[in-house]
Amino acid sequence: MSALGMAVVGCGYWGPNLVRNIVACPQTRLVRACDVDAARLAEVLAPYPGVQACTELAEVLADEQVTAVAIATPVATHHALARECLLAGRHVLVEKPMAATVAQAEDLVALARERSLRLMCDHVFCYAPVVRVMKDIIDAGSLGDVLYFDSVRINLGLFQRDVNVIWDLAPHDLSILEYLTGRQPVAVSVQAARHAGWEQENMAYVALDFDNGFLAHLHLNWLSPVKIRKTIIGGSERMLVWNDLDPAERLKVYDKGVTIQPRPDRAARDTALVSYRTGGVTSPHVPHGEALAGVVAEFAAAVAEKRAPLTDGASGARMLRILEAAQQSVARGGARVPVAGEGA
């Protein structure tokens, strides 16, 4: 397929990574980069003299070589920028979360559908090689029935001014959870706090309820003295541990489990027989590769093949329904809040 002409709008924190990967991808060609800070833009584009710099989105959309736009700006600007690009007939890749509200996300989804354009959310971890390996393990049934998802994503982190720690970090784990299990929560409850004089919540414990006994829990924190990126997925047969900070053995599968066998001759619960199985531990091979490179390649393929990308606009809208319910739970002191369905 011919290279997809692209522009990057926003060259602050994440934009330079998009610039680098779009330039490196054989299926894409970076035509322009746009940022309101001309000095920052010049710094980012210094290694790429063939890319045109501009400070106005209008310049991007006036360039007929630009077929698609990647947006990496503050969350509050996503909807307006993405909408303008879609109205101008451009395919759109937008950083997570896709918009500031569910209504905004649904508006973008409807507009992209109406104009037969690709709308993709940069749920980057869905394209990480280690997550792809985890998906293969789960789909093969190696874990048995998947029972729970437990994630810790903490460090003395970058304090965001436009969103709190839930909106900043939870999208990573929520997108991974949906990709791996295909499940959607029915309710969410959140305990969160603001510390260090910050106006946004900077630590949170997010509990997700599902309608089949499956549970998920996310620990999110910008105030931890140590950096931890660990996910445990428990199954009826085996359990999987992903430690993203252990390059030698990033992924481990434990052949461990519990079987509870009630004794038919005794009614009391304390007479049940609990059997523990402790087997070996394996560390599956995880191929090298940058997740964002997978995002860019998938976006280009979706445009060329005229199909929905893996993490399309609808998946971005589903995530926002969870985030809005989570924020309502915070406002209500940790109350359990139902997650709204599509069109609610």
Rank of each mutant, 00 (worst) to 15 (best):
F159N: 10
A308W: 00
W222Y: 15
T101P: 00
L81K: 05
L156T: 08
I260K: 04
L323R: 06
M6Y: 11
W14V: 11
V206E: 03
P97N: 01
C54G: 14
L119Q: 11
D312W: 02
V102L: 13
N17C: 02
F149C: 07
I154F: 02
R250F: 03
P74Y: 07
L61T: 02
T278H: 11
E298P: 09
P16M: 01
A68E: 12
D312N: 14
D139A: 12
L30T: 13
A248M: 09
V274M: 14
L320H: 08
G343E: 02
S142K: 07
E237V: 15
T67E: 14
I322L: 01
L240C: 11
L215Y: 05
G280C: 05
K252Q: 15
V253G: 04
P171G: 10
S175V: 01
Q52P: 00
K227Y: 06
A204P: 09
V286E: 11
V8S: 07
L45R: 03
S2Q: 04
A325P: 08
E95H: 04
I22C: 10
R132P: 00
A38V: 12
G289M: 10
W167G: 10
R318S: 13
A272Q: 06
L87S: 02
D35N: 12
A335I: 04
E298Y: 07
V165A: 12
A272H: 13
Q191F: 05
V92Q: 03
G289D: 12
A39M: 04
L310N: 05
A99L: 01
W222C: 01
G197T: 07
L18P: 00
H172P: 02
L18S: 05
C25L: 04
P171N: 06
A103W: 02
A331Y: 00
L180P: 13
V303F: 08
Y254T: 02
A24K: 06
I176R: 11
A340V: 03
M239H: 08
V94M: 09
Y179E: 08
V66T: 06
Y13H: 13
I260L: 11
A53Q: 10
A340Q: 13
Y276R: 05
S329E: 04
R118C: 15
K252R: 13
S224Q: 07
Y13C: 00
R307L: 03
V130I: 14
P47Q: 08
Q184Y: 08
E305V: 02
H217Q: 14
M120R: 06
M239D: 05
V19I: 09
A38C: 01
T231E: 12
Y13M: 15
V296Y: 05
V186M: 06
V69E: 15
K96G: 09
E64C: 09
L81R: 05
K135I: 04
E342Y: 05
S275H: 08
R238I: 07
A335D: 15
F149D: 06
V131H: 03
A267S: 09
L108V: 01
D136Q: 15
H172E: 01
P284Y: 12
A128V: 05
M6A: 14
H123G: 15
G333F: 11
P74W: 11
P225L: 07
L156W: 07
Y179I: 01
A103P: 09
A105G: 14
P74C: 12
V9G: 12
A314R: 14
A331H: 00
R277P: 00
A192R: 06
L240S: 05
P264K: 02
T311F: 05
E342G: 02
A314G: 10
K252F: 08
Q65M: 09
A53R: 08
R113M: 00
